[in-house]
């Protein structure tokens, strides 16, 4: 995973709440067995509509998505994070994220910046008044800036540290392999196994 410290890019206002992962990428696009190439499925149903924000010129190359509350609800598909990142997004700003989506984003290096809904509304206004305006997200300082407007965002400290360092979870866990083996030795005998060992 690439370390993330600060990112500046075109902000995209997405005035919708409850953007579920079926909207981010419909199931029909999940059939690939590779890890890249999911950008064509991003918001597939809405992209057919000329008026959709990503079909407007300055927003087409956006990399900071500013969305309504309850972003990423529904299915656990990590493809939603891959689709956003494959398209070019590095940050999503919302007042509430679904738990699984937020976890998946943190594993892949997509920053989920949680702001108040008032801050989101302010960003929407700025980005709609000046399409193409850039947003700067500073992970070490936990700040979001657009024009003269600056605010802070929430992200849990552990995910922030991992993102800043670009660390792989599995390697971190395997440092504790002894503890895992010790735990396994204490499991009750009645717990089921799927195949005989």
């Amino acid at each position: 995973m690439e370390p993330f410290s600060k990112h500046t890019g075109v902000g995209v206002p997405l005035r919708r709440s409850n953007v579920d992962t079926d909207q981010i990428i419909p199931a029909v696009y999940l059939k690939r067995v590779t890890r890249t190439g999911f950008e064509d499925g991003l918001f597939a149903a809405w992209r057919g509509d000329e008026s959709f924000v990503l079909n407007q010129e300055p927003f087409r190359n956006g990399s900071v998505l500013v969305a309504g509350p309850d972003f990423g609800t529904g299915s656990s598909r990590e493809h939603a994070v891959w689709a956003l990142m494959d398209y070019g997004f590095r940050v999503v700003i919302s007042s509430r994220f679904a738990d699984i989506f937020r976890g998946n984003a943190g594993k892949q290096g997509l920053v989920t910046a949680q702001c108040t809904q008032a801050d989101v509304e302010q960003l929407w206004k700025l980005l709609e008044n000046e399409p193409g305006a850039e947003v700067t997200v500073d992970l070490s300082e936990k700040t979001v800036q657009c024009k003269d407007f600056v605010t802070t965002f929430d992200i849990d400290d552990y995910t922030r540290w991992r993102l800043l360092e670009g660390l792989d979870d599995i390697a971190l866990t395997l440092r504790h392999e002894d503890a895992i083996s010790a735990f396994e030795a204490t499991r009750p005998s009645y717990k089921p196994v799927t195949i005989a060992r």
Binding site: R77, E78, D169, L174
Partner: peptide, 17 residues
């Protein structure tokens, strides 16, 4: 439910942080 990165993590370590 977990995402694919976590699926890989569980396959490799049988644990999750």
């Amino acid at each position: 439910g977990i995402g694919t990165s976590e699926v890989e993590h569980v396959l490799a370590t049988q644990t999750l942080p």
